[in-house]
Amino acid sequence: MGEIVRYKRDVWGEEVILGVSWDLLYVVFMAIVILLIAHAIVMAALAKKNLDRPTGEGRRVVRHESIDRAFHWLMAVSILVLIFTGIAPILGLRIAWLNIHWISGLILTFLVIAHIIRATFWQDFKSMMLMPKDFAEPFDSSRKPGKYYFEQKGMHWAVTVVVLAVIVTGVLMLMQINTPFWERTNSMPEDQLGLMFLLHGLSTLALVALAATHIYFALRPEKIFYTRSMVSGWMSEDELAANHDPAKWSPKEAD
């Protein structure tokens, strides 16, 4: 555990958790880079067999409503800002990061709460549900998914868990600093505080890995139409037919 957790002395000299070991950041970063490069190489090797990529031409269907796209990008920006402002001081960049960090964190928190409410009551919650049968999907090329395929659902839920963890720990940490809304206290015992920092750090590391992976796939040639759809909202019927099962997802036609 010594390499994962950093310890410190509390005010009376007893050892307590201080937080995550930021050496892990480099480990995670390197691991992700290696994995993604490996993936890219494999994909490049397989690319020749897969030349019949669906075209974006032709009739279009709606994949993401504008409000959903706005949510996605706002969350994405706030997460990226949070990651950057959180990591900058660790990398030794001297920027005034804390206010941007907690303000972004609050924005993300509100976005996530709003998204949870919307997704629960107004969106097609089931489309994101990960069912046991979905787990066969990656291994059976004949099975096409509904709106989201297995990996997308997996990414979503992984991000959900991690973001919720950062938010909960982040809000608890926010209580420990001065903001325009309150003066800080030292009300949290130092061992609990350390645990918060540890969980926040661990989830940050996971988030860094997930964000890197997400961005990588978003930029992959065979997936980039999903990214386009997150920008412009539509995908072509050709793309729909090639990747999704109309029986499971029948989007309306785009204007």
């Binding site: 201080l18 800080r184 030292n186």
Partner: peptide, 19 residues
Amino acid sequence: GLDCYRAGGNICYADSPEG
């Protein structure tokens, strides 16, 4: 010698209601 923020810790002992 306390492990405060400035010493790389995660707390300020001086800025608190009774510091």
